[in-house]
Amino acid sequence: MATLEVQGIHSFYGNIEALKGVSLCVNDGEIVTLIGANGAGKSTTLNTICGLVRPRQGTISLDGEVISGLPAHQVVARGVSQAPEGRRIFSRLRVFDNLEMGAFLRKDKDGIASDMERVFELFPRLGERRDQVGGTLSGGEQQMLAIGRALMARPRILLLDEPSMGLAPLLVQEIFSIVQIINAEGTTILLVEQNAHMALSVASRAYVLQSGSVVLEGTSAEVAGNPEVKRAYLGEG
């Protein structure tokens, strides 16, 4: 059974159909990437999984249990957390408080404390700035905080929306290597990226989204080898 199973979801903004029957699955322990151009519906897919957008049709299930239709704050409780596009950290809360919010539903004080230490190990720069308000962090640090905050929920599956956005190449490298560490430690990951090159190098499988529909899926190697993908997303041939 897949960890996350999305079956034929249709999502709308008013009358605009942003997702036209998207299906995808992520198996336990995988990194799966979802790539596509601007406006393809990648963020909408993640937000539909998280319950911020209600699908008009289709179902989403986590470990076989249907989660579509649940409000966003209950989806987190089931084990899905997201580091959203543009980081969306709480700029007026301290780093520490942002992480505490990530663990909002958890009651295990000791577990929360040790997970926070783990986040500070993964991202030492956050540890140094734990009492600084989020708004004063650099873009890279904010991305680290967004990922750390999502990890604080101890998710079954972590959704990452364009973690490389607006970051210098070296920092992108760093973030991606940490994403791989997180995955190796047992967190399943669905990664949305515009940086197809990077995404395909860390993911085992990939989906290509175009105008609200999945137009291609396969292993990363297969997708990377597709001439159309090479031309449109990898800037080759």
Binding site: C50, G51, L52, P71, A72, H73, Q74, V76, A77, S81, Q82, P84, R88, F90, S91, R92, L93, D97, E100, M101, G102, F104, L105, R149, A153
Partner: peptide
């Protein structure tokens, strides 16, 4: 308090607060 911080989180960004599991 955690609830107070949740209030400030909601004040700043409701959708993201909901992603944290906060019942807005």
């Amino acid at each position: 308090t955690k609830m107070g911080k949740a209030m400030r989180a909601v004040a700043e960004d409701k959708d993201t607060a909901a992603l944290m599991g906060i019942d807005v």
